[in-house]
Design a protein around this nucleic acid. Structure first.
Lengths: 340, 340
DNA sequence: CTGTTAGCGCTTTCAA
DNA sequence: TTGAAAGCGCTAACAG
């Protein structure tokens, strides 16, 4: 049982399938079948093998298995940042549905670090996942091209790209922005301030918002742009800046609830009242929105449904569905509460 | 260039290292070296190889590489749930430091699903990560035993387990709880209400808190326990329940900022004043704590430092440091603000 | 600096 | 139901 330590102190050799096979007095392939196709092995043999597995503490080596079977049973979901709470429920549902189908989900954060997007992506692809879920669009064309050149199933989520890589589950942020403005216009507001975060989707919402306001005879009196990543503090600062510039407004539209949260705190600190002094509308319907006082009106997106659909679509792609065979729009819902 | 589709529609064969080698007119190992040990190849040869790589769109297969080299350059960090914001910065720093050292970090969520903890762990181990970071303690002994039986470097974080698996970067939640009570006792508060979340670490903080209160002649007049996962709504409900039961109190201690946030909203909704009517103290110092009105007193833990240290320790373990060679206590800081 | 040989641990394919 | 042979794509070890 003693093993010589190799020169460069490589990790211990570990128990292999062959070790288990020897102990159970079967051929290696039988052990493999017990693990992967239990039906194809007699109950008696299977039991002997399982005993040997337990006795040895064998952990299968998926690197080897995936290499030859060309299936890793791994799905990677790429998220821009853990801090972005929009994706929490999406990822949860993804993991759940994929897990039930025998796939493992792992998350990769794509923010920060010295690596380019393409390098990060190559690092992921090198591990040969069976599928990929993107919660944020690839910013570089190099990365996009890389995926287009592969036959790897990909689901882009949370938006509706003009030229999808493969399948899509998302919503139109332009439309959502227009609906936000429409909602406030419908309540009689005309003088809007915009507090914006700095990502492409927020920009789309702003665009939709601006066009709707213009179309209906409203006016955008001021606009503040927060740096990325956006924070509650940005919301406070933005409202402070807005008040400082002195232009009158009757509604504040935030591209994300965090900004609205900050704006509300700033209003409270100054003794201003919402919705008395101005209406306030956020986006995302994060958990605190319904709980704040006053409760925050927001736009809700069914994040869990995005995850479920993305998982289902991936599974279909694994079963042979064609690339690009599915584009789903999950839409959005305006949730009116006390603040607007 | 046409390939027959194999019977079970296995994924396309893809470009291999041999293809690149053939195109560049070198041996496969030279291509490997260009990728892994660029110094060991002449600039001229390297250039030819890189051209061939670009031309073919070659993506290395780490499954094969890791199999033979016994190094996956993968570190997996296990988190209980994406929703838990405490770990955001820890994971970010982990990814950063490990990334600079050539390791890739992937996250696995361990909540929900039908899989047991041990099964989930086996699924991770099967991919042969070079290291593991736990942000939450393993709940089952089976899972713990599995890790103890391997030589895999592991760092447990965010607490100081009595019997560590390997290395540790954390803090004493018992001490933090005692300090929370001590802080309020020092401000003259004596009648405490406790709003608790339902995890082991919160329980430790509660324990520390209770003992400190008792020791100093204070009193815990009421205690509410929120179900897991905890939410802002739980905070509102808990404060409402507390007020309903009618017992007088002058300070509310929450095991987590989310509960304090909810409690504050409920207080605002009822026209109560913080800290006028009662002091409020949270834990975690989440981003909104400093921004709320009134600003929330809380306990800050240097989450980023935990990540940095964990990464550094892992790298040392990779370099041969002994199992269990490092136990770090990062402590905590009480951040006094308006609410207490 | 470059190449040859061997084999990582497993599953596919075919045969019994 | 079980097994034997072959080889997935790559790198360690050694040789030139």
């Amino acid at each position: 049982m003693t093993t010589l330590v190799p020169p460069h102190a490589a990790p211990a050799r570990g128990v292999t399938l062959d070790d288990v096979a020897r102990l159970a007095k079967v051929s290696p392939i039988t052990v493999s079948r017990v693990l992967n196709y239990p039906d194809k092995v007699s109950a008696k043999t299977a039991k002997r093998v399982r005993t040997a597995i337990a006795k040895t503490g064998y952990v299968p080596n998926l690197l080897a298995g995936s290499l030859v079977s060309r299936r890793s049973r791994l799905v990677v979901v790429v998220i821009p940042s853990l801090a972005n709470r929009a994706f929490v429920e999406t990822v949860r549902q993804l993991a759940l549905v994929l897990g039930e189908a025998g796939y493992q989900l792992m998350m990769c954060q794509i923010e920060g670090g010295a690596k380019t997007e393409a390098q990060l992506l190559d690092g992921i692809l090198a591990r040969r996942p069976d599928g990929l879920v993107l919660t944020t669009a690839l910013r570089t064309d190099a990365a996009r091209q890389r995926l287009l050149g592969l036959s790897l199933p990909v689901v882009e989520t949370w938006e509706l790209p003009a030229e999808p890589i493969d399948c899509v589950v998302g919503l139109s942020h332009f439309d959502a922005g227009a609906a936000m403005a429409g909602y406030l216009l419908g309540k009689g507001h005309r003088r809007f301030a915009l507090l914006c975060s700095s990502d492409a989707r927020a920009a789309q919402r702003v665009l939709g918002c601006e066009q709707a306001v213009q179309r209906c005879g409203g006016e955008i009196v001021a606009r503040f742009q927060a740096a990325s990543p956006v924070s509650v503090a940005d919301g406070r600062n933005a409202l402070a800046g807005l008040l400082a510039c002195g232009k009158p407004f009757d509604a504040v539209i935030c591209t994300i609830d965090l900004l609205a949260q900050g704006a509300l705190y700033e209003a409270q600190a100054r003794g201003l009242r919402v919705p008395g002094d101005f209406a306030l509308l956020g986006f995302g319907d994060l958990d605190f929105a319904a709980q704040m006082y006053p409760a925050l009106s927001s736009v809700s997106v069914d994040a869990g449904k995005i995850g479920q659909l993305a998982a289902t679509i991936l599974l279909q792609r694994f079963e042979g569905a064609a690339r690009g065979s599915c584009i789903e729009d999950v839409g959005y819902t305006i949730v009116g509460r006390a603040s607007a």
